[in-house]
Amino acid sequence: MKAKHELKIEHKYFQAVKDGRKKFEIRKNDRGFQEGDLLILREYDPITQEFLGRIMKVEISYMTDYAQQDGYVVLGIEEIWEGEELTEIKKVVIPKFVAEFLGSHWEDGEPAKEDKADLIRNQEHYIRSFGTSELKNWIVKADNFILFVEAAMNGYEVEKEKLYYVELPVSIWNEHLGELETKYGYLKYDITSDETKIAVCDPWNLRNFKSKLTEETIKSIDERYWAFAVEVEG
């Protein structure tokens, strides 16, 4: 099943792809690109911030992140003929606070009256309306307004929040050595009772003593704990 991703592309690059001279795209991998996915490339003028009307469909034939900036990939692309069947529109992934904004302003994350083109034409108005909020800081990043529009129009998935252990140095009396030694304790948080404790545990049985917590939860318990947060792998 092919997924479809709609992307803007500057005129000079659009033409190079159209002419067959440019057979790759370097993109931030915030869409979960996969080989075989389809890209809908929309010709765009960055000066007027308007789409120029031409659209081209290409297929991802190859992917690599070799020697790229963190989070970016090189996509090998091949133009495809009109009429290829699109069986799935892949939803964009957005942070939780963006999803909360969409949910509070538009029922089911859908604009009531405006279409996608209108949202894009009036992006400055929307950005100004966000004030100095966390949302504005996210939306002014490269291409994030397009992500915002796609989320509003086509639906979205919420980005999974990172989880952390809180690893704290604890002094323990070693009876065999007759002195204090430093071990690591882990914050255990019971959300039902809002109770916290620090436990030193057997390294082979960490799961019974560690709590996986979000940054927000850790800071809500005590801001000072954040300095000892260790991201949970996987």
Results as ranks from 00 to 15, higher is better:
M1E: 08
E6C: 00
E6I: 08
L7A: 04
K8V: 06
I9P: 08
I9R: 10
A16R: 07
R21T: 10
R31T: 00
G32K: 09
Q34T: 02
Q34I: 02
Q34S: 06
D37M: 09
L38S: 12
L39N: 00
I40V: 09
R42N: 05
E43I: 01
Y44H: 13
D45T: 13
D45K: 15
P46Q: 10
I47V: 13
Q49N: 04
L52R: 06
G53N: 15
R54Q: 05
I55G: 02
I55W: 07
M56F: 11
M56I: 10
E59S: 00
I60C: 04
T64R: 08
D65K: 05
D65F: 08
Y66K: 03
V73H: 09
V74Y: 11
L75A: 13
I77C: 10
E78M: 02
E78F: 01
I80R: 13
I80K: 13
I80G: 15
I80D: 15
K90A: 03
K91S: 13
V92N: 00
P95I: 10
V98W: 05
A99K: 01
A99M: 12
L102R: 00
L102W: 01
L102I: 02
E107P: 03
E107H: 04
G109Y: 07
P111S: 09
D115P: 12
A117M: 14
L119H: 08
R121I: 09
Q123D: 01
R128V: 04
R128H: 15
S133Y: 13
W138Q: 06
A142W: 12
N144I: 03
N144V: 04
F148A: 09
F148Y: 10
E150W: 12
A151S: 03
A151K: 10
N154S: 05
G155E: 04
G155A: 04
E161R: 03
Y164S: 11
Y165H: 06
E167M: 12
E167G: 01
H176Y: 09
E181M: 07
T182W: 12
G185K: 09
L187W: 10
K188Q: 10
D190N: 09
I191H: 06
I191V: 02
K197S: 12
V200Y: 11
W204V: 08
N208Q: 11
F209D: 14
K210A: 14
K210D: 09
K210I: 15
T217S: 06
S220Q: 07
D222Y: 03
E223F: 14
R224S: 15
F228Q: 02
V230Q: 14
V230L: 14
E231G: 02
V232K: 05
E233F: 10
E233G: 07
